[in-house]
Design a protein around this nucleic acid. Structure first.
Ligand SMILES: [Zn+2]
Ligand SMILES: [Zn+2]
Ligand SMILES: [Zn+2]
Ligand SMILES: [Zn+2]
Lengths: 171, 171
DNA sequence: TCATCAAATGTTATGATATAACGTTTTCAA
DNA sequence: TTGAAAACGTTATATCATAACATTTGATGA
């Protein structure tokens, strides 16, 4: 099969409401298949379906919303069903957990090494992931001033996305 | 009364296990009294006690741990008791909520405007708050590249503090 | 003083998120 | 084909947080 050239996979920019989200989903699923194949990890039907559900939009999705969606499809599902799938996806970098929201969002660039840096719009709920290596380095440098060795960093920024900022200046 | 010169109140640096933590507590309580007085907010006995309990160390404290502590003192207390006190302390900038830990920690510098920037040691649990204005500005600048207007930022960095890094290099 | 109102706190119940523990099915290779 | 590991099903429970309403407290003004 052709490598399905993911030339313009979701860039870390705010998507317009009218964008072709099917491409986001298909790109994420293809990237996940590929990544799991390379890592010898099993992207089972259930895990794949949960990933697809997480990608239902660019807003974070809660575990129990996923649970409801699975049940609506007629699957036998309980909290561990979805949490185990989420743990798998997290462990392979396919999704991220947004701590403030207690919810999950698909990672648009699982293969690029990156810190978690998220912009969350208070108005429309859209979340995008920045991948600003310089910013990650700045965080590590600040931490180093305190003699702190960084293992993981999580940045969650609340505010207004370009579309919503137009209407509500000053937030 | 003398202004009790808080000359060397908790700097944003890792405290040694042997530091005089009573000074951290007393300084935080005095700063809270002063801040509430200026703002016309009532730091009641309960709220003051909860703040003191949050300051029991430099580790984040969960709401139910506070609840247990209040009950151990013979107070009538239920979850709303402690959550309401925490909401008050949060709203006046006297404590911060650590999203990843679902727990709370005292703010060593409530009067300085600052973004939430926390270093959390995976080994000993100690958390310190950086107040790196340049880093906050760097975050805002990165967000601005995406047309995003920042309202609030929360940075939670996991790793190893100086004391613990010595033992577990590379951790 | 005492009526009155708002803020603070007490009390009960429930919602929302997450995991422990154990049994069954599937997978895969020896 | 059979044994072990992984994945999944199932039940129960732990953990974090808030809704709703009653009671107490403390300030204000008649
Ligand atoms: Zn999309
Ligand atoms: Zn990512
Ligand atoms: Zn201290
Ligand atoms: Zn602070």
């Amino acid at each position: 099969m052709p490598p399905s050239a993911p030339a313009s996979r979701s860039t870390a920019t705010f998507q317009r409401p009218g964008h072709d989200h099917r491409r986001c989903i298909d790109g994420a699923l293809a990237a996940a298949e590929e990544r799991c194949r390379r890592r010898g990890a099993k992207l089972t039907e259930l895990r794949r379906r949960v990933l697809e559900l997480v990608w239902q939009g660019h807003e974070p999705v809660g575990a129990y919303a996923l649970l409801d969606a699975l049940r609506a499809e007629g699957r036998a599902a309980a909290p561990p069903t979805v949490y185990r799938a989420l743990d798998f996806l997290l462990s392979h970098g396919l999704i991220h957990r947004l701590e403030k929201a207690n919810a999950f969002i698909g990672c648009p660039r699982p293969d690029d090494p990156h810190a978690g840096q998220f912009l969350m719009c208070l108005e429309c709920g859209t979340v995008i992931e920045m991948d600003d290596a310089a910013l990650g380095a700045a965080v590590a440098a600040s931490a180093a001033k305190h003699g702190f060795a960084v293992s993981r960093q999580m940045l969650e920024v609340e505010g207004h996305c370009p579309s919503c900022a137009r209407g509500a200046a000053g937030g």
